[in-house]
Design a binder for these strands. Structure first.
Length: 281
DNA sequence: TTAACTGTTGATAC
DNA sequence: AGTATCAACAGTTA
């Protein structure tokens, strides 16, 4: 599922191919997936593709196509047999687009296409002016990989909270871009229990935690995301590589790489949580 | 067959 | 305001 590394991988690849292209037509197959005036996004060159938190934005001269993939959203770009990136396995189903899960199909002036697929319909693409775009991004705290997301910042935000630290890390208004996979791994790397209440963490704990969070997310970006169930792929159908490096996520019953303890799985705030009961305290 | 589970966020109620 | 729970939806697993 797309977390920051997955969305960033998609952003980088879209940014390689989209700038300069003009949208010539848009087919909306599901009204829930798209809002905005199609006429407002055609016949003008795409400027750049940006990301904040898990929100992806295709910037046009006068407006923006703002995108949230939620859990099952995919963006696939096709131009004949041309591919961007390479070397990794490519999903074969991209040959058959649009599919039953394709919600939007953009056609560009060079004949290439962008497909928005979304099995569960939670995701969206919305045309927003600068002010609306700004308001959307203002919901989120600093990206976990930004310098602004410092130990001092997080420590201060933790002081007046008593939720389990795992819940706080998943709260995008505190720090943006972390999802279940990278939070579980970061807590293991920092040797902090996901159950620890935020206000009980020392500044030293928070320093270890923020370093671990940045490290796992940066590794995730380097490996171009994680694909645990085949759902996440980049714009050419390419799977990620982080799933082979996961520390605890999905490893219930297997040994902790840090101490050899047995990885446990419990629920925190309704979310499956993997951790090592022996070295995460 | 039915229920639980999947993950991100917004809405709602305390 | 902080916290907890549920809902949006569809498909897969128990």
């Amino acid at each position: 599922m797309p977390e920051l590394p997955e969305v960033e991988t998609i952003r980088r690849r879209l940014h390689q191919v989209l700038p300069g292209k003009q949208i010539v037509s848009v087919e909306v197959f599901h009204p829930k997936s798209f809002t905005g005036e199609i006429a407002s996004i055609t016949q003008q060159p795409i400027q750049q593709v940006t990301r904040k938190a898990k929100v992806l934005t295709i910037e046009l001269p006068t407006t923006n196509i703002v995108t949230h993939l939620k859990m099952t959203g995919q963006l696939i770009w096709k131009h004949g047999d041309q591919r961007v990136g390479g070397g990794h396995p490519t999903a074969d189903w991209i040959q058959d687009l649009p599919s039953k899960h394709t919600r939007i199909h953009y056609t560009f002036d060079d004949g290439s296409s962008l497909f928005f697929n979304d099995q569960r319909l939670f995701g969206w693409m919305r045309v927003m002016d600068a002010q609306q775009h700004q308001a959307e991004l203002a919901k989120y705290g600093p990206d976990i990989i930004d310098d602004e997301a410092s130990a001092e910042y997080l420590y201060e935000r933790f002081q007046n909270k008593r939720v389990p630290v795992k819940v706080a890390l998943l709260d995008g208004s505190i720090v943006a871009g972390l999802g279940n996979i990278y939070v579980c791994d970061a807590l293991n790397k920092a040797q902090i229990s996901p159950f620890r209440r935020t206000h009980t963490l020392s500044l030293n704990d928070v320093e270890r935690l923020i370093v671990a969070c940045k490290a796992v997310v940066e590794l995730g970006i380097e490996l171009e995301g994680s694909t645990t169930d085949g759902m996440y792929v980049s714009i050419d159908g390419m799977a990620g590589g982080y799933q082979t490096k996961m520390l605890v996520y999905g490893r219930e019953g297997e040994p902790c790489y840090n101490c050899g303890g047995t990885i446990a799985k419990e629920k925190i705030a309704g979310r499956g949580t993997y951790f090592c009961p022996d070295c995460q305290v």
